[in-house]
Design a protein around this nucleic acid. Structure first.
Lengths: 146, 146
DNA sequence: GTCGTTGCAAAGCGTTTGCAACTAT
DNA sequence: ATAGTTGCAAACGCTTTGCAACGAC
C-alpha cells in the first residue's frame, strides 16, 4: 500500500511482498508506463501496450492500472479529457491547463504549499491540488485573444 | 454569447436574440435546471426531465445543455464523477470535495481571489478555479482517520 | 414557408464483469 | 497444487450522429 517504486525491480518486489505475480502482460504494461513521462489515460495505455505486445487484452490493462494504483506505483488525476495516470514517483505535480490552446504547465512545490496555506487559513479542509488540474488562460492566449 | 439569465423569460429573450426557438422540450429542460440548486450531470438531467415530461429524448437534452452553455446560461465543472452542469448565475463556485467521504463545500470569493494571487505571483497564467473541483480531506475525516 | 429542432435508432467509446482456462509461484 | 491472472465476449452507461419528420417563428 505504500511503495514509490521507481523501477521494474522495485515493482516486482512490491508485488511479491503482497502475494501478487509478475506476468508478461504486467511486465509490458509497467514498461509502457515507465517509458512515458507525463500522463496517459487508460485507453491510451491499452492501445500502446497492445501495439507493442499484441496479445494483451484491454481488460487486463484496466485491471493492472487499478492494481498499480492500489500499490502506490501510479496515481491518477483529472484533466479536461478525463482521468490520467502518471507515476507516483514523479512527485507533486499540479497541472495548469490552458482552456484555450490546451498547453500545459505545472506548479512547483513552493507554489503548491502557498495554495494549501490559503485554504488552511480558514478551513480544516486539507486540499490535494494534484488530483484535479487547474484550468485557466495561458500567457500566450491572454496576449493574443479576446 | 453573454447572458447571465436568471429566469425563464430572460432565457427566452436570449434565444430569440440569437434566432433560436423556445420549444416545449427546452421549456422542460430549463425548468428542471432552474429547479435544481447545485450541480447535476447531463445523464441525470436527462433522467429527471424524462420523468416529468416523458416525451423528451435524451439526445435533445444533451443538445440543449450544450446550447445553454454556449449562451452562457449554464457552465460545467469537473468533479470526481465527471462533468456537472450548474447555472452560471450561481456565481463563483469552487468545489471542495472530500475524497474520503464525498462531502462537499465551497470556497468564497475572497479565498478564490487569494488562490489566484498565489498563481499570479510567479506566472502569467490566469487560473479559473471554478472549472475543476479541489479534492482533499475534510475536517471530519481527518479527525476520524489516521 | 423557412429553418431550427426533435425523435429515432444506431453506433461509438471507454470501461466493467463473469467465467473458464491458464500459469506464476 | 494453489491461488492469482488472463482472455474472451458480452454488457454497460454515457454520449454522439445522420436523417427524415416536425413545428416555432
Amino acid at each position: 500500500m505504500t511503495g514509490s517504486a521507481a523501477n521494474g525491480d522495485d515493482i516486482l518486489a512490491l508485488l511479491r511482498a503482497n502475494g501478487l505475480r509478475m506476468t508478461p502482460q504486467r511486465r509490458a504494461i509497467v514498461a509502457e508506463i515507465m517509458a512515458t513521462d507525463g500522463h496517459i489515460n487508460p485507453a491510451d495505455v491499452a492501445r500502446r501496450v497492445r501495439q507493442r505486445v499484441p496479445g494483451v487484452n484491454a481488460s487486463t490493462v484496466y485491471r493492472t492500472l487499478d492494481m498499480l494504483e492500489d500499490m502506490g506505483v501510479l496515481s491518477h488525476a483529472h484533466l479536461e479529457t478525463g482521468a490520467e495516470y502518471h507515476r507516483s514517483s514523479e512527485g507533486l505535480h499540479v497541472h495548469l491547463i490552458c482552456s484555450r490552446c490546451g498547453s500545459e504547465d505545472a506548479l512547483d512545490a513552493a507554489e503548491i504549499e502557498q495554495l494549501r496555506d490559503v485554504v488552511a487559513q480558514r478551513r480544516r479542509f486539507r486540499p490535494d491540488f494534484t488530483h484535479f488540474a487547474i484550468s485557466g488562460i495561458c500567457a500566450a492566449c491572454a496576449a493574443s485573444a479576446n
